[in-house]
Simulated assay, not measured.
Amino acid sequence: MGDDSAVTIRAAKGATEYPELVAIWRSAVRATHDFLTEEDFKRIEGNLAAMYFPAVSLIVAELNGKPVGFAGIAEGNLEMLFIENVARGRGIGTRLLHEAISNHGVTTVDVNEQNGGACAFYRSRGFVQVGRDELDGDGCPYPTLHLKLSSLLAG
């Protein structure tokens, strides 16, 4: 385990960086999304650079100058947050989430109900469930929880 101070957050460099981000996504999803069918995994992976990345503002976490995680934000919603499997558990996701909330206006996130680790991560960082859908955004049978920062629900 390294020093957390070696983590920096920056804007993505654009499409030239997409292959590295896809590799991070692949590592993270293989480790955390065991509920995905292989067909859905391949479909999503194929859409990342073509459709999903261009639709969001991407921020990248680097550890010692190497990208190890990223988050995608659109209209106040955290659309994606993935950490390379070997870098998980080091506070990198927390740093990305903090940056997304503090500097990019994130107040909501949708998370796969079957991804217990992600559900616990967001809940432990102040998000509460405000809704649920049986299908994900692509109409696939992966229940999705809609979470919102609890500090915004008061009053």
Rank of each mutant, 00 (worst) to 15 (best):
P54S: 05
L48C: 03
G93Y: 11
S124P: 00
F70Y: 14
I24Y: 01
I24A: 02
K42W: 08
A55N: 10
A15P: 13
F121T: 04
H104I: 04
N115M: 07
A49L: 11
M51R: 15
R43D: 14
L48A: 01
A100K: 01
L97A: 03
F53V: 04
E99G: 01
A100W: 08
P67K: 11
V56Q: 13
G116N: 13
A23L: 09
G105L: 01
V86Q: 14
S27W: 12
S124H: 15
V128E: 12
E79Y: 00
E20N: 13
G131A: 10
R88D: 00
V109K: 02
N77V: 15
A28D: 13
F53K: 02
D40P: 02
K42M: 13
E45A: 10
T16S: 14
A28N: 14
D110P: 03
L21W: 09
S124I: 00
D40W: 07
V29E: 10
L96K: 06
R123V: 02
T94C: 06
Q129E: 15
E99K: 11
A100D: 09
E134P: 00
V111F: 09
G76V: 06
A118K: 08
R90V: 00
A71M: 06
E39S: 14
P54A: 04
E39Y: 07
G105N: 12
T108L: 04
Q129M: 13
G116Q: 14
F41Q: 09
L36C: 05
S27V: 09
L36V: 03
P67D: 11
F41N: 03
A120R: 15
E84L: 01
G14R: 06
T16M: 07
L36N: 05
A120D: 12
M51A: 14
V109M: 05
Y18M: 05
G65P: 09
T108P: 01
M80V: 12
N112P: 03
L135K: 15
L58D: 04
Y52E: 04
Q114A: 13
G126R: 08
D110M: 04
G69F: 06
V22M: 08
